[in-house]
Structure formats: structure tokens, C-alpha cells
Nucleic acid binder design. Structure first.
Lengths: 125, 125
DNA sequence: TTAGGTGCAAAACCTTTGCCATCCC
DNA sequence: GGGATGGCAAAGGTTTTGCACCTAA
């Protein structure tokens, strides 16, 4: 079972203490102020644990492999969480969303990326 | 200027010849059947070029570096293309989309990731 | 002719892992 | 005590880069 440690607590506190969406390295530097000899490996291990427990979210697929698409136009994708296949979706891109959120946020939004995750036909059994 | 080469053409042909969303390694293996001594570095260089020219798309809902979010619940993000800051958006998650696309595609969709891209306040000048 | 492309290998980069010591329950 | 966790360093996997050579324009 998962038990507590001061390292894990410090890591969580560091993440919760910022509105940035920090990298592992940033978290490591932050925690080091409290626990100077913590190791980067420990930070990674605990981030993975916290993610697995549903406490935090990882925004990108770490060290993930780049995949390329022959279609240059923006479109949406489905990715199977089991076999990792990627399929183009035949769904219109909602450009109004960009305009509405540009108005609402003040950010200048050019486009968006949308990816659905689940199980493809072959992996549902 | 960008000039043509048989390597670049073979790479593009290989990408266009599949509906998979291949990795650099897969493309490399494919092109090697035609140009056995092509190097992986060349593949990466040309992929970057083709992407920059808007010929292909890199499916980068993943950056190279993982970023973490203290919010565990799914929500949407904005990412600034200049300073790379990430901001949580106050926009309701559209779960109906998952249901509709599950019906339409036959895939079992659990959730989706949506990320807007553009310029944040500080980077619009 | 010459700027851009290539091959090769090494470096860079982020992340994971093995090993053994340490800690929590 | 014993399984979970940590520190350290080395390994792992993907991508980039330096350099000398080559090639398209």
C-alpha cells in the first residue's frame, strides 16, 4: 500500500502552491529548498504515484514519442489507451470556440487541439 | 531556401502512404527500404522542416517535457505558443461530446483533452 | 559556385530503474 | 519484520547537433 513520506508531502505541497503547471524539474528545485538532498528520481516516482492515485494530472504524455500526421489541416483525433493507435475523426473543427474563448479570456487564440481517449474497436473485448 | 532531395521526398511519400500516425522511427524504417543508408537524423530534420512548412502535423498534445496540474479533474487548458505558459480555463467540460462520438465511431470514449493555443496577455504586444 | 542537405556519431535531454539503505506501519 | 520509499547513479529512449562531405540550383 501507499504510505506517507515527507518527500511526497513536500512534492504535493509544492505543486499545490503554484498556479503554474510546473515541470518535474521545477518541482524538484522547489522541494529542494525544504529537503536539500531529495533526488530527482524520487520526484518522478512520486509524481507517477500521485497521478496514478488521481491526485494530480499530467498534461502531456511524458517522454512520449512524437507522432506525425500527413494531414496538415487541424482536425481531431482519437487515441486508444490500450494499443495506442490514433485515428482521424470526421468531426468538424469548431472555430467559433476559439473566437468565444478569445473574447472571454483576452488571450489571442489561434487554434485548439482536441484528442479523445478510450478504447478502439479491437481493444474492447 | 529549401531545396528538394530524394530523402525528403521518400519521407513524405512514406507518411502519405499510411493512415497510421507514424513515429519517426517507423518512418525511418519505411524509408530505409528505399534508401537503405538514410540516417535517423535526416528523418528528424526533414520532419521538422515539413512541419514548419505546414505540410504535415505533429500530434503534440504532448510537449517534450511533462507538466503537472494540481487539479485532478479533467479541464481545459490554454498554452501560450511564445512563453509556453499554461493556464486553466474556466470552461465546462463537454461530456456529451464523448457520448456522441462513442455512438458515431464505435470507439469507447472515456474523456478528451482540449488545449487552446495562441498568445497570452503578456505576449501580445 | 555555394547554400542547403546528408550520414555518422556523439551529445543532449527527460525519464526510468537497479541497488541498497532507510523508514513507516 | 517486512514491504514501501528514498538517494544515488547509471541506463534508457527519443531527439538534436557538430562536422566533414555531397548535391541541387
Amino acid at each position: 500500500m501507499t504510505r506517507k513520506s515527507k518527500q511526497k508531502e513536500a512534492i504535493l505541497k509544492t505543486i499545490r502552491g503554484t498556479t503554474l503547471h510546473p515541470t518535474a524539474e521545477w518541482i524538484y528545485e522547489g522541494v529542494r529548498k525544504e529537503i536539500p538532498n531529495i533526488s530527482l528520481g524520487t520526484v518522478y516516482r512520486n509524481l507517477r504515484l500521485l497521478k496514478r492515485e488521481g491526485v494530480i494530472l499530467e498534461l502531456d504524455l511524458a517522454g512520449s514519442i512524437s507522432r506525425f500526421d500527413k494531414e496538415a489541416q487541424n482536425h481531431y483525433h482519437f487515441r486508444c489507451e490500450q494499443c495506442d493507435c490514433i485515428v482521424d475523426l470526421d468531426e468538424a473543427v469548431n472555430t467559433e470556440l476559439n473566437e468565444r474563448l478569445t473574447r472571454q479570456t483576452g488571450f489571442q487564440i489561434f487554434y485548439h487541439r482536441l484528442e479523445f481517449r478510450g478504447l478502439c474497436n479491437g481493444c474492447q473485448s
